[in-house]
Write a protein that binds this DNA or RNA. Structure first.
Lengths: 219, 219
DNA sequence: ATTTATTTTTAGGTTTGTCTAAATTTATTT
DNA sequence: AAATAAATTTAGACAAACCTAAAAATAAAT
């Protein structure tokens, strides 16, 4: 099994994430994601191409090869398992763990991640609601719907927040919304797309369409 | 607070360990410990000298400065806390964890190590019996005696194995001796320094002086 | 279809941490 | 005390991963 440097792993992981949204990845996009200059991306692409990790032709957009995908999923699995550990065992808050997991995801021992997975009892979702790939790279995708598309009057559990900015977190805190919160949509106003929601004992609240589109639930 | 690279941390840690045995450290000793050539050690010493981590004059043996000591203890603390975690939470065997902890010890977050320490309930000794420095770098040294010096007929608990080679581990396994094993020395033969020991329900056994000197206990 | 703008690549340089081989210093022997 | 041996340092190189600035290719706009 080939070994990859921390830099290589970060590039591979970032390409994977960018592919989720854009299908195909450009050098500039990637340079922003890994926080380097476009020239450095070219250097790395040539190296990853030699190692058959990316499908790459000069001046063209690129994608991961099958082996590349596999490596990305392994790194993402490690990242999310560690996040789960940090929150559910060490008591971190879900918005504190990303940076730490960025380091832990590069610890190489497979025995370690295997045992950690056992210890955590094979969780399928990390504290942000993102799915954790299993040891074969399989990810459990259950259909999440945002508040703009959720059927009325039916209770659902918040599973994922798309925009995870500080501003959004502040707003969610104010409305007592977090991963796992059970709520239902009472009414949806066609005029501006805003939704009225109800959480257990709290008074009803109204969220703008912009916010509603960022809050995902599973029914 | 200054940041140090993984290489720097490894050099600092190794100097600390070598100082425990030799007071003063030579370039060759260090080069063996960090698995590089003497010339590389010189390069690193110059860098660490600039950062006021080592007391170093060209061609002379060297030691850590006070700040250097502090950093070494932080790395060692992390290493041993992770080893404790790997054995007592993830179920690794004590001879499997060193390599993994060599990677984990370089994770930088102090909040992480603080929380890990809380989670493990502030252990004072790692699975090998080595003391874990507390957050201020204090290490609990309780007087350990090897089997060659232990008073006769008094039960004691094995706390530390000096020679941790595979050969020694094999021998210990055969005699059912591990960290925590309760035993007493029945008799000591002056002729060759060998000792007769008794462990709970097992038959008495005789260990050579060479072995006895490597097994440490606390009464 | 040219021109202009954007993106990507090349060329050459820097830093970190390593190396080998030669030179220098310290230690050991005779 | 001089000669030899051992340890340490210097000098010059290399690989990885980054950079800047200029050149080349592609995309967009007139």
């Amino acid at each position: 099994m080939l070994k990859f440097s921390i830099s290589e792993e970060n590039y591979i992981k970032s390409i994977f994430h960018l592919q989720e949204m854009h299908d195909t990845v450009s050098a500039t996009m990637l340079s922003l994601a890994v926080n380097t200059k476009a020239a450095s991306v070219t250097d790395m692409l040539k190296k990853l191409h030699l190692k058959k990790i990316v499908n790459y032709r000069p001046y063209k957009n690129f994608t991961l090869t099958e082996p590349g995908n596999k490596i990305a999923l392994e790194v993402i699995r490690k990242h999310r398992l560690w996040e789960y550990f940090l929150v559910n065992k060490l008591g971190f808050k879900w918005d504190e763990v990303h940076v730490i997991a960025e380091e832990l995801e590069h610890i190489s021992s497979t025995a370690l991640i295997q045992r950690l997975d056992d210890y955590l009892e094979h969780p399928c979702f990390d504290p942000h609601g993102d799915p954790i790939p299993d040891k074969h790279g399989k990810i459990k995708t259950l259909k999440q719907t945002n508040l703009a598309g959720l059927p009325l009057k039916k209770f659902a559990a918040v599973s994922y927040i798309k925009d995870q900015s500080v501003q959004m977190l502040e707003l969610l805190k104010h409305y007592h919304i977090s991963i796992g919160t059970k709520l239902r949509v009472n009414k949806r106003f066609v005029f501006d797309g805003s939704v009225e929601i109800k959480i257990d004992k709290l008074p009803v609240a109204v969220l703008s369409e912009q916010v509603a589109k960022n809050i995902f639930c599973i029914a």
